[in-house]
Amino acid sequence: MQHDMIIAGFGGQGALLIGKMLAYAGMHQGKEVSWLPSYGPEMRGGTANCTVVISDKPVGSPVIKSPRALLALNLPSLDKFEDSVRPGGVILVNTSLVNRPVRRTDLRVVSVAANDIANSLGNPRGANMVALGAFVGATGVVDLREVEALVRDTFARKPALVEVNLKALHAGFEAAGEQVKEAAVTPGSAGPNTAAE
């Protein structure tokens, strides 16, 4: 089984960090992983993005033209990658910074207002953690507990930050999870993003 995904946003929104944490979490779960930053023609267009592959067997192409999941942290990212996502895949949209609906209808759309949620938690800088939690909730690409462990490791020297970031992570996870539950009872909706190889 292979999960592959593109994480995209403005520089500074944490797209590369989110991708790295997903790759780390996958690796800690014993999976094969690769993380490829925007490097190549896809760099153009004002987005920073990375491609992450998490697989049960050695990763073939680290370059993914048609990912099974997309995390669009802003509008240019959605504009750029919407059409590339595989039918049946997942697009997670940060509706705080995306002011249009997703046009695709052949895949599952999860909407989370990451910046608004972070603001409501009094932690505006935690939007990336909200988005990460939401992405894990929307796709199930890695175990949330592995991500929690990473957050604890990352902020080990600043214990005060561990709790606020875990809070942001959980808030995102739950916001996405509610929509996934709703989708699951809707006949004909696409299942979780776990296409078999």
Binding site: M27, S34, L36, G40
Partner: peptide, 10 residues
């Protein structure tokens, strides 16, 4: 190639 340099893997 450039990918080898920029890519992260275990």
């Amino acid at each position: 190639d450039g990918l080898i340099g920029q890519m992260m893997e275990p």
